[in-house]
Design a protein around this nucleic acid. Structure first.
Lengths: 148, 148
DNA sequence: TATTGTTATACTCTATAACTATA
DNA sequence: TATAGTTATAGAGTATAACAATA
């Protein structure tokens, strides 16, 4: 519509800006990851398994801030794609030990590069200084000052 | 957990930061607006009706970027609360003319102040300069350079 | 034919409760 | 008793398709 002079107040509200910035980043990430057959929400799981080496489903879920019931379906999908494997824990047989497969590690590395490119595209309207400031500011506001 | 030295890469990704920043802002807004009986998603509707004076449901939906089928339920809720009214358009009887009621204008003004306070709380970890830069940077990245 | 409002439907994401098997 | 994984279910939120009334 290009009706810029009647740019209502709600367009400059943080709630609106954050929602739409997040939607655009999510869309760019989804596009970037599509060739690797993974969803944006699955990449952090690959990251954390790589970081921890191996983890129980509970551990992974807690670290990522999703609950353990959601983790089941997420890991089902990753296991179906051959990116992670589950085996029973050696001593505590209630647990699963979840690890990246070779293919999972490979996809993770390549998907991470694709996601980096998506971030660069997202940040393209900003110069390097503003981009760095944005990332730091988001880190500061993303969690309440007194919580995790 | 406070395991800050193993702060995995995914915690500094824009997708993660934007999602959690948005969640926190949404939560603060929801809290701020609860006393006024409206949801965060309803305030922009009040804003746009105030801005336009009157609008068809289609107009309001298009401006706000929601589709017209979602607008129906949103306006049903606002009408039930007595904040907006619908009457048939004088000449085009397919349309509804949607306007703020007196109570709707009052709630809008007070809710806007509450939402401003929520934004200030959200931005509290930043100094004034960083807060302004954040808002401008989000405005720049919220929409692709060539779209909207 | 096209448009406005509406309803019904479906799909995603997430959260809660309850079950099982182990500890 | 408590915990890990699982399943079933339900709730937001949103999108698509089809319909009635009107243009």
């Amino acid at each position: 519509m290009a009706n810029d002079e009647v740019d209502g107040r709600w367009r400059t509200r943080l709630g609106y800006l954050l929602k739409h910035a997040q939607l655009r980043m999510a869309e760019l990430n989804a596009q970037a990851l599509r060739p690797y057959g993974i969803a944006a929400r699955e990449l952090p799981i690959l990251f954390i398994l790589d970081e921890l080496g191996a983890a129980s489903q509970q551990e992974a879920a807690t670290r990522l801030g999703v609950d353990r019931t959601s983790m089941v379906a997420l890991l089902d999908a990753l296991e179906d794609k051959g990116l992670v494997s589950r085996r029973p824990h050696a001593t505590d047989r209630r647990r699963n030990v979840v690890v990246l497969t070779e293919s999972g590690a490979d996809i993770m590395a390549r998907a991470a590069r694709a996601s980096d490119a998506a971030e660069r595209e997202f940040l393209a309207p900003l110069d390097a200084d503003d981009a760095n400031r944005l990332r730091r500011a988001l880190g500061a506001v993303a969690h309440p000052p007194d919580a995790d």
